[in-house]
Design a protein around this nucleic acid. Structure first.
Length: 286
DNA sequence: CTTTCTGTTAGAAA
DNA sequence: ATTTCTAACAGAAA
């Protein structure tokens, strides 16, 4: 489940690995993953290269050069981007090779082959993820749908408070809403609220100034930590080398239903909120 | 065997 | 306008 820290990890790694590499061939193995016209998709990529890789929320943005096009990659729930050097076998991920360097795994949807025989595989078990090429104007429209990035200057206490203002939804719903704050998903929403000591079902209009401040601090702390540990592997997430994220060892509530709270010894509860499994400690989150 | 659950987001429904 | 629900999908668990 790639959220901001996982997508950030992939972005940083791929920026070191694939920039300037000429794309020799584009293989689409399953329809549906590539949005728009597949032939156009291939034509825009083939013979060109990536100049830079950016990110907004959970969305990866590859600048294609030369030209004014961008490749968008959304991993949704089970998407993986795996980089393989020539002849290099990757242990993790859904793309277990079986002999041939480029033989796709069962869930490989798209392969970008570079001219040095390295490749980038897009795997996606549940096929919710997508790849799409957009121009500058379309990209701007996409960016408009995203709220504040938690690790930028725009995520000031003032802006955060403003974003919460006059809403009647739960604090977890706010954290998960990409139009309000970009990049937080189910795992980190639960972890942030645990760190802040706030119950996920609290309505935002019931939060005191102090509580908002605490959530604001916790959000930055948790996301920074998670990036430092290269993200969380709970089910399918792996980085571009096929390796798991290490933050899973630092999770304090997510996936710990029925276990003892590390802070107060209470029993972690799991409920359904905003249609999602939601974990919290009923004793030390208020 | 069938049903339930998993979690992201667009788009529909309320 | 704002909030809630559901479909898309594959597979593990119950």
């Amino acid at each position: 489940m790639p959220e901001l820290p996982e997508v950030e990890t992939i972005k940083n790694d791929l920026n070191k690995k694939i920039l300037k590499k000429k794309i020799r061939e584009v293989v689409i193995l399953k329809k549906g993953t590539v949005r728009g016209d597949a032939r156009k998709f291939k034509n825009i990529l083939r013979g060109n290269y990536f100049e830079d890789i950016g990110r907004i929320g959970k969305l990866l943005i590859f600048k294609i050069a030369p030209g004014d096009n961008f490749l968008l990659v959304h991993l949704k729930m089970t998407g993986q981007l795996i980089f393989r050097k020539k002849g290099k076998v990757i242990a993790g991920g859904h793309s277990q090779p079986e002999g041939d360097d480029f033989l796709p795994g069962k869930h490989t949807r798209v392969i970008l082959k570079f001219s040095d025989d390295a490749c980038l595989l897009f795997n996606d078990l549940r096929r919710f993820g997508y790849m799409q090429i957009v121009g500058e104007k379309e990209l701007e429209d996409v960016l408009k749908n995203y709220g504040i990035e938690p690790l930028t200057k725009k995520f000031s206490l003032e802006n955060f408070t403003e974003a919460l203002d006059r809403r009647k939804i739960s604090v977890k719903a706010v954290l998960l809403n990409q139009k309000i704050i970009a990049g937080i998903g189910n795992i980190y929403a639960d972890e942030i609220l645990f760190a802040a000591g706030i119950k996920p079902d609290r309505k935002v209009d019931s939060l005191s100034k102090k509580e908002i401040l605490t959530i604001h601090n916790s959000a930055q702390k948790i996301i920074k930590q998670a990036i430092k540990y290269r993200g969380t592997t709970f089910n399918d997430y792996v980085d571009s080398d096929g390796n798991s994220g290490n933050f899973v060892k630092h999770l304090k509530v997510y996936g710990r239903a029925g276990k003892k709270c590390v802070r107060c010894g209470g029993i972690i509860k799991k409920i359904k909120l905003v249609g999602r499994g939601t974990h919290y400690c009923p004793d030390c989150q208020v």
